[in-house]
């Protein structure tokens, strides 16, 4: 009987959303959005959508909170006061009413007669064992049945990171001196000078990367896959950057490498499709990779495609972090009258 837990979680979600809307301190609001994502992840887990919960926890509560905070380093910490106007409120209420009206026609949660459960889902579930032999149905729906959609999503991530680089003017600067890597403004003490933080993070980062690789390659059998693994590995690298500073990180993982990585990931995905075309199949039809054993060919195809997604997502996450944090650094140097350069 999971019902009461979900109600409580939804109430928490509502309270968090209201708090985010009402808070004027943007720093606190950014932390609250992290809590919002964590609560959403709990709800997704209760709905048995573990793969989605995984992504939500890693992206929403992890990486995007860091990006919000990096943005706050660029802007003010408090919300600007605007005079109260009726029009936006009316617009929001109207939109909300339309959305709620829209949900009235939708099937109830968990309804076995819902269109989504009677249309293609039975074929996907049957095909998972028959054609793929992969226990995690989500992975083969994502990488094979819905391969075009996932390719689209990977291209969206590629486009997003290109957009961020163009907008925030990601400059390729030569690595600065190692003792000025702080991304904390106002000359606050640097995290890497605290032995406990440094030692603990050095112990944790390899484990996070290892876990990311596990998620990447175990995605056929358990929850996970390229997106989740990419975000987890990206988060580990960003953690390193938060503690040891941006320019130290940029010497470990230079941005040209990341730019190449994003393109390479998309290329690997698209190239797998082209390879299947050249071998006489449809685009992203992996069965042709092994004429004797179609199951094996599909496994190979999914491995390649998930690999492409993983590489692209990892590099995109780190590069977006570079763009935000690099901008904050550049501004800080500007505020100090170009000090330290």
């Amino acid at each position: 009987m999971d019902f009461p837990v979900e109600v409580i979680l939804f109430l928490f979600l509502l309270a968090t959303a209201l708090t985010v809307a009402l808070l004027e301190d943007l720093f606190a609001a950014a932390m609250m959005t992290g809590i919002f994502s964590l609560l959403s992840a709990c709800l997704f887990t209760l709905m048995d959508a573990v793969d989605v919960a995984f992504t939500e926890a890693a992206v929403g509560a992890g990486v995007s909170t860091v990006l919000f905070l990096s943005t706050l380093a660029l802007t003010a910490q408090r919300e600007k006061q605007h005079p109260f106007t009726w029009f936006p409120l009316l617009l929001v209420i109207l939109t909300g009413a339309c959305l709620v009206t829209g949900t009235l026609d939708m099937p109830h949660y968990g309804d076995p007669k819902a269109p989504i459960h009677v249309h293609v889902a039975p074929e996907y579930i049957a095909g998972a064992e028959r054609d793929f032999g992969i226990p995690n149905i989500v992975t083969n729906v994502l990488a094979s049945y819905r391969g075009y959609d996932t390719f689209g999503e990977t291209v969206v991530i590629f486009t997003a990171s290109v957009g961020v680089m163009l907008l925030l003017g990601h400059r390729r600067r030569r690595p600065g001196p190692a003792h000025r890597p702080t991304i904390t403004p106002e000359g606050a003490a640097r995290m890497r000078d605290f032995a406990i933080v440094r030692v603990v993070s050095m112990g944790v980062i390899p484990l996070i990367v290892l876990f990311g690789l596990y998620v990447q390659f175990h995605g056929d059998f358990g929850p996970g896959g390229g997106f989740q693994a990419g975000v987890i590995i990206g988060a580990a690298v960003i953690l390193y950057g938060l503690i040891f500073g941006l320019s130290t990180l940029q010497r470990v993982v230079p941005s040209p490498l990341l730019e190449t990585g994003i393109a390479l990931g998309v290329l690997l995905y698209g190239g797998t499709g082209v390879a299947s075309l050249l071998m006489g199949g449809h685009y992203l039809d992996y069965a042709v990779f092994d004429s004797d054993d179609p199951k094996h060919g599909r496994h190979l195809g999914i491995l390649l495609v998930e690999g492409g997604v993983g590489i692209a997502v990892t590099c995109a996450m780190i590069l977006i972090f570079y763009s935000f944090a690099g901008r904050a650094l550049a501004r800080e140097a500007f505020d100090e009258g170009g000090g330290g350069q």
Partner: peptide
Amino acid sequence: YTGPAAGHALVKAAYA
């Protein structure tokens, strides 16, 4: 392993 370290980092940052 991580909880106390996070608390430590938080307090140190606030103190600084």
